[in-house]
């Protein structure tokens, strides 16, 4: 749980939602200069499965490189949490949030590099 500074250039923020249930999930990663995720935080307003999925995602992200993080699949989350079929979309949401946080971080880094040139 919690928040990282979304304006920090080493922080990537993913904000995703499930329109079918009105859930909203924010997942943030703080990445070191060598591309390792040092910290990950989430805030989820949704059902228990959505909260558990995002919580597990942040646990798994810590210590992984960005590229390793990119390989986390919703099926892995669903399996670990034993989610029933009707709750699979909660793990999809968590995967979306990871992907979107990574994409945000990469966009920031690209902007930083182009400024440095």
């Amino acid at each position: 749980m919690g928040t990282l500074d979304k304006n920090d250039e080493s922080v990537g923020t993913g904000l995703v939602g499930a329109p079918a249930c009105g859930d909203v999930m924010r997942l943030q990663i703080r990445v070191s200069d060598d591309g390792v995720i040092q910290d990950a935080k989430f805030k989820t307003f949704g059902c228990g499965s959505a909260i558990a999925s995002s919580s597990l995602a942040t646990e798994w992200l810590k210590g992984k490189t960005i590229d390793e993080a990119d390989t986390i699949k919703n099926s892995m989350i669903a399996e670990e949490l034993n989610l029933p079929p009707v709750k699979i979309h909660c793990s999809v949401l968590a995967e979306d949030a990871i992907k979107s946080a990574i994409a945000d971080f990469r966009t920031k880094q690209a902007a930083k590099r182009s400024l440095a040139k």
Binding site: G17, P19, V24, K43
Partner: peptide
């Protein structure tokens, strides 16, 4: 299949 919520809506709701 529902239309994806816009980033602005998600931000606002969060």
């Amino acid at each position: 299949q529902e239309p994806k919520p816009s980033g602005a809506l998600l931000m606002e709701m969060m």
